[in-house]
Simulated scan of single mutants.
Amino acid sequence: MAETLAIRTARPRPVPWRSILLHLVIALGAVAMFFPFYWTLVTSLNADSRLDSAPTLWPADPSLEAYATLFTRLPFARVIGNSLLLAVVTTLVQLFTSATAAYAFSRLPFRGRTVVFGIYLATMMVPLQVLVVPLFAELKAFGLVDTYLGALLPTFASAFGIFLLRQAMNQVPTELDEAAALDGAGHFRIFWTVMLPNIRPALATLAVFAFMGSWNSFLWPLVVLRSPEVQTLPVALAGLQGQFTTQWDVVMAGSIVSILPMLAIYLFAQKYVIQGVANTGLK
């Protein structure tokens, strides 16, 4: 018996080839996804960058001259401030409108609720390109073209945000609402003290998506914002290719500047995003 146990103990464990292969594929995928960002950073630090040659893995003479050009020869600080203003306001307003509408669809029984919610979700299938002309004509009639408010108004409501928060609110037990109602709480108090604290991961997820959507928005700001004083970052980046056709280090420096805020926000809210998507049942 002891000899049998000794033989079993001494037997070498099989090599987990499947696990090794899986981790190798994941590592290769991570490198493939990270390399364009790394090459963009290296190009922004190399003053003699050219796109018709092989990618440089390390700058021969690292320099921040391209970043200095962005903020001295161009009003890039104003552009970043414009994008930041629009993104923050859009995020805050979308959180408010989406949360209140989601509470109504989740907790307030009214006739035709399912039909109205389905129609509202159907608006997600309408692309922005279809709405650009009527939106522009409407804002022009109200004198809101080339203004911050004109750029913000179409972004104040989000069908995706309402869907995301409604799914999260449906996961909150109704017993909590009933207990709060027995204590004399009305809908506003239930919404503020019961519902919102229980859907914080979903709120963080929507905040990241809303901020990212506004920060990267190109078509609508290009159409409605005409003056350089109100120009946003994606539009300014597109203009860099025309002003600095051969200075790719300046173009790449602008790309790095546009990436850094989103990277910082996502790293900060990553756990909330994953938890929010898991709790709402989205895949």
Results as ranks from 00 to 15, higher is better:
A77R: 07
P234N: 10
A159V: 03
D48R: 10
M1R: 13
A104M: 00
T40G: 12
G112M: 00
F209P: 02
T246C: 07
M125N: 12
G239T: 01
L86T: 13
R166K: 06
V273G: 03
W39C: 04
D183M: 08
E3H: 14
T155Y: 10
T90R: 04
L164E: 05
A2P: 07
L51T: 12
E138G: 09
V126K: 11
P154R: 15
L28Q: 09
V31R: 06
L225Y: 02
E65N: 10
L144D: 06
A253C: 11
A264S: 12
Q247T: 08
Q171Y: 03
R107E: 00
V89Q: 08
A236R: 00
R226V: 15
T232S: 03
T280Q: 06
M262A: 07
M212R: 02
Y272A: 15
W248H: 05
Y272N: 05
F218Y: 14
N198L: 11
A269N: 03
R111D: 09
T4F: 13
V93E: 01
V208K: 02
G143K: 12
E175S: 13
A60D: 15
E138K: 14
S98V: 04
R13N: 09
T69P: 07
E138S: 13
R50E: 05
S53I: 14
A32W: 11
Y120H: 04
E3G: 04
T40S: 10
L95H: 01
T56F: 05
P36R: 09
A168W: 00
L233S: 07
A204V: 09
V251I: 11
P59G: 10
V42F: 04
A122M: 09
V277F: 12
T174F: 15
I26Y: 10
I265P: 01
A253F: 03
T97V: 06
A60N: 15
R11T: 11
K283H: 15
V42K: 05
P234C: 14
M252Q: 07
Y67N: 11
P55W: 12
V145E: 01
V116L: 15
G29E: 11
A264G: 05
A101G: 04
L144N: 00
S19I: 13
S98D: 02
Q129R: 08
L225K: 00
P261A: 04
E65T: 11
L28Y: 13
P154C: 14
L206N: 03
G281C: 08
A207P: 03
H187E: 02
K283V: 15
L219Y: 08
A27K: 01
L22S: 15
M262E: 05
V172M: 05
A122K: 04
L153I: 15
F96V: 12
S98G: 07
L92S: 12
G254R: 00
L233A: 05
V133N: 05
V88C: 14
D48S: 14
S44D: 08
V224E: 02
P109R: 12
D61H: 13
A168K: 01
P62T: 07
R200E: 12
F35Q: 04
L108F: 06
M125I: 14
F110G: 00
